[in-house]
Design a protein around this nucleic acid. Structure first.
Lengths: 235, 235
DNA sequence: GACAAACCCGTACGGTGTGCGAGTGCTTTG
DNA sequence: CAAAGCACTCGCACACCGTACGGGTTTGTC
């Protein structure tokens, strides 16, 4: 049977090799991950794709929209375990760590995340799985499930924003982590005169193990928050 | 006694009325608070001050440095109560609320906060008073004091970043809060097909009271976190 | 062969931060 | 009183940005 005007799909010229939204998104992700949000311009992106700058606008309405696509791409990388596997509490812990490491892989995310609403498909799927996980905790009302999940996301994103910020400062300085940290501490020490508590706090931070320190920060607060949430579930 | 080269201060031409760093900072703050970070450009700022664009560069090395000054200005607005007044727990609660409302007054802060280290004088003073407050809680080690304070700041900043983001989206839409919220919910509802938990979650949020909802979010998580922290102090 | 759809892109516009160097008024010095 | 020098202002220019516009090329369907 011949296809009617209704059934046949518009397919004029798909042959010659062409730019595609997927390809643009993929390349933009590479640029963003390696050069940060300041390193992404439509002209540079197009050049890297061997195309003219304004060609991109055929596939993507606007740079902001492109960034939206990239953000949603990140949401897809995040694990949210099913509560049956290991229970709510450790599931939430795992979710938190997964969210953190996704942001560490894409350190530009905090800078752009808040500029537009997150209602892409992957954001939705993430939310869905999160609600299932937190729903299994046994909160008294469904509303509390929303609140609990929201507070965990806020905590993780807040912590990891600060973390990413320091890591980016190290990276941009172009120096070694060790030397950056030690100079930073020195500088902080010198600014902290007249502030005894701060001075002590800086002095305590003699560790050169930046990774370990940041992870400890993260885990400490997340544990405390989850403890507080657990106290709110019905016994 | 005649002043020597060493004692005399350089004071060549302070007479004619002139731009000042304070004035620039103050005006920039007004622009930022009312138009957001995208609305601040050196040219516009200079115009508002009745000056040429590049005149500003005499008083401020760079736009980024200007923003640093503005950030530190915000830190000065935050209350950190002395622990003697109401105890650690309610002091921390008050600190959190104070931090939140400062950010709500300066919604541009999350966007720029993480781009440079915060080691201005007001940031230092804030840290100092915070450490005193959290120090009174009775954590086992001083290191835990650092961790506790850090996690509260991260939670507050994370939550309020999201909050500010939605408030800014409402503002930029130019529409009424009510109409924006209801359209947003509608849109979310339509995207949330196939996601039953999300759909339910959106359906639950029938409240038009955005303020109340955001405050509830904030308080819920902060309470939980403080509960979790309190469980870590020595009995 | 005609037509249209899909796609590419050069040009241009209005914006950005800021380096440079010349100019202008004031204070101090000789 | 003249000269020197400092504090400060600012027009111009450069390199970059996002993207609207409109004409061009390729490909497929009639």
């Amino acid at each position: 049977m011949r296809e009617t005007i209704w059934t046949r799909q518009r397919s004029a010229a798909p042959a010659r090799e062409t730019l595609s939204r997927e390809q643009i998104v993929k390349t933009a992700m590479e640029v963003l991950d390696s050069e940060g949000v300041g390193g992404l311009s439509m002209r540079k992106l197009a050049a890297r794709l061997g195309a003219g700058a304004t060609s991109l606008y055929w596939h993507v309405p606007t740079k902001d929209d492109l960034v939206d696509l990239l953000i949603d791409q990140v949401w897809a990388e995040i694990d949210v375990p099913e509560p049956e596997l290991a229970g709510w509490r450790s599931g939430a812990l795992l979710f938190g760590h997964s969210l953190r490491s996704a942001v560490l892989r894409h350190p530009w995310l905090p800078e752009v995340m808040y500029t537009r609403p997150s209602i892409g498909p992957n954001a939705m799927a993430l939310g869905e799985r999160g609600l299932v996980l937190f729903g299994a905790a046994g909160f008294v009302t469904p509303h509390e499930v929303d609140l609990a999940m929201g507070s965990v996301m806020s905590y993780v994103l807040g912590t990891v924003s600060a973390e990413v910020a320091t890591r980016e400062m190290v990276r941009k300085s172009g120096r070694s982590e060790e030397s950056w940290v030690s100079e930073m501490l020195e500088q902080a020490q010198s600014v902290a005169t007249d502030y005894p508590q701060m001075q002590e706090s800086v002095r305590r931070r003699t560790s050169v193990d930046l990774d370990g320190e940041l992870t400890e920060n993260f885990v400490f607060g997340l544990d405390a928050l989850l403890d507080g949430l657990q106290a709110r579930v019905k016994k």
